[in-house]
Computed example of a mutant assay.
Amino acid sequence: MSKDSGTPTYVEPGEEFDRDMNYIPDRITAEPGRSRDPHDPAARDGALEVATWPIEPGRYRLVAAQACPWANRSIIVRRLLGLEDVLSLGTPGPVHDDRSWTFDLDEGDRDPVLGIERLQEAYFERDPDYPRGITVPALVEVESGKVVTNDFPSITHDLFFEWRDHHRPGAPDLWPEDVREEMEEVMQRVFTEVNNGVYRCGFAGSQASYDAAFDRLWAALDWLEERLTDRRYLMGDVITEADIRLFTTLVRFDAVYHGHFKCNRQRLTEMPALWGYARDLFQTPGFGETIDFEQIKAHYYVVHSDVNPTGIVPRGPEPDWWDSPHGREALGGTPIEAW
């Protein structure tokens, strides 16, 4: 079974898609065994119930394919927080086989820092019998070559809370305290119904499971369309982690999910609030520059051979649309400025 950041590329006929959320739970924290986030669900009285690794500039490498929406989150957060000088980035190519993501974009087909051809090597360095999918994003310890964690929600969470001593001046507050409780609820709904919802449609193993997934996805997108009609960002006036998590699905919607995953009630471009919102984020520093539509399309249309057996990659849609005026300034808010 091949995996795309934990996603099987086939589902047995008649089955409903169920994402495997079992990841390596280790964390990289500022203080060993403790979390800086008082609301951290893994913490009890300030202590973490998982193995923790110390923060050291240059010690770790973030391996994150631009094609993958789950990895794309970490690339955006790293960029917004200004962590480029303390946490290096390795970018596998968009097309992988059943074994692993590969570094075919790099000279000699090897990651220039880790010296490996396949991300699989870092997983096997930690556990020669690693039984699960070789997923991105992954944080790898450079010296040992071992993967530390591939728990994608915790990676972006910890880049904000744990690495804050290394954030750039003026870095955005991606987890505002005053909206944190509601934000957690919004992010959970975005994850289950939208981020994962498009996969539930695309990998449905029966008409009934597809129909149910389709209805759930569009109920959530209609809710988001209404929510974003009179507010600039998901939580109001400022960009948060919730916006990053939604953006990486929206930016892939018309290019991939609408057709490839059969999420075709409407195109994103036909939903005024969501389309304007997505362009607003795309044109925000730290977002659009992380997007490579050719890599995104190559990944989905080539790797998912069960969904697209011909391997033909569509030429559209036109990427220049993303740079067109969005008009969201009329809603006010405080966008992230270039730094």
Rank of each mutant, 00 (worst) to 15 (best):
R265I: 01
E226W: 09
M21C: 10
S144D: 11
E49F: 07
N196Y: 02
D106K: 07
E193A: 14
E181I: 06
R27L: 06
E117C: 11
T310K: 10
N150E: 04
L114P: 08
H299P: 09
L89F: 04
D109G: 11
L62S: 03
P112H: 13
W322C: 08
Q66T: 11
A298D: 15
D237K: 12
A330I: 12
L331M: 06
T156A: 15
R99W: 08
A208M: 11
A43T: 03
L281S: 02
R189N: 13
R27M: 13
Y60P: 01
T52N: 11
P57T: 03
G259D: 15
G286V: 06
P137H: 03
R78P: 08
A330S: 14
S74L: 07
P8A: 04
D215P: 03
N195E: 05
V77S: 00
R231T: 14
V198K: 01
D109K: 12
S35E: 04
F287K: 00
F287H: 01
H166Q: 02
F103E: 04
R44Y: 10
S100C: 02
Y277V: 05
S74P: 00
P169G: 15
Y277G: 05
G14S: 07
I24W: 10
R132N: 13
M1E: 09
P309V: 12
G82I: 05
K3N: 06
T310V: 09
P272V: 11
E337F: 04
P38R: 00
C68I: 09
H258T: 05
N195D: 07
D215W: 08
L48T: 04
D109C: 14
W321Q: 11
H157N: 14
R78T: 06
L89H: 10
E16Q: 12
H167S: 14
L159D: 07
W321C: 02
R164W: 12
V251H: 03
I28N: 04
K297A: 12
L62N: 03
C263D: 04
T156S: 14
R231H: 10
F124S: 01
L268S: 02
N22T: 13
T229D: 14
F152Y: 15
I244E: 02
D20Y: 10
G170H: 11
Q66R: 14
V86P: 00
E143V: 10
L62D: 00
G108H: 08
E56Y: 00
Q207P: 04
A47N: 11
H166T: 00
R19A: 11
P335Q: 04
V179E: 12
P137A: 11
S209M: 04
I116K: 01
E294C: 02
